[in-house]
Design a protein around this nucleic acid. Sequence first.
DNA 1: CTTGACATTCACACCAATGGAAGGGTTTCA
DNA 2: TGAAACCCTTCCATTGGTGTGAATGTCAAG
Lengths: 126, 126
Amino acid sequence: MRIGELSRRTETSRRLLRYYEEQGLIFSDREANGYRDYDEGLVDRVLQIRGLLGAGLPIRIIKQILPCLRETRAIFFEEATPEMLAALEEERDRMTARIRCLERNRDAVAEYIVAVGGDQLARPAA
Amino acid sequence: MRIGELSRRTETSRRLLRYYEEQGLIFSDREANGYRDYDEGLVDRVLQIRGLLGAGLPIRIIKQILPCLRETRAIFFEEATPEMLAALEEERDRMTARIRCLERNRDAVAEYIVAVGGDQLARPAA
DNA sequence: CTTGACATTCACACCAATGGAAGGGTTTCA
DNA sequence: TGAAACCCTTCCATTGGTGTGAATGTCAAG
């Protein structure tokens, strides 16, 4: 698909898609005229990238862990140097820490909402 | 405690602590001489703030949810306007989305690590 | 030929964070 | 008492990262 379709399907500006490509997060083939030609899988990939960015991971790290996230479960063993493995383990642990932090705080927010009487399913008797 | 101690205990520069105060994320009493006097609870508070920032929440949002996160369970009902409640519910849901995204991707990273034979320090006889 | 989608490139905006200088007061300890 | 270490404020500039705007040009189709 071309960039316009990918943009619509991911609700991501063309500009940003080109930026992600420039940053090495996604790739595209080119049509004869130079237009980008995206694989179907790029839709999920872009959403995934945006999710991770939204969760605070920098592009540099996302680029690093992308090889682990290929939907095609073709794992590239040859690239698994000890240094890279260590970096991945570190990042995995950092993600766990992030998750815990978010869970704790989300739960606190949720408790607060309940305590002050919010979240009454579909506002029954407002 | 004074700013130096808080800085050491949170591994956060004095500069940044003053910045957070300027941004309205934390508060301090003042000694007679003008020195900031921090409550013991600020240690956790600062760590919490840094965790949330690291998880991708902007200062603006963190400031908004801080009232829900007071360790003193004094909840300020009077401030719970419907608009604020709606904003909180939205933010709660966004945090949940973040958590799910991180979980999915962390698990993928973890699987990859196992697949390429990492993490054997912890489990020698894999 | 006009319209819309595509291309590239430079510059800018926003946010978190930092650095540093100026210029001054306070605490601690030998 | 003197020095070092700590603290204060204000101001200004900068860095790094994510994201955007706008100018300018090409391509394809009605």
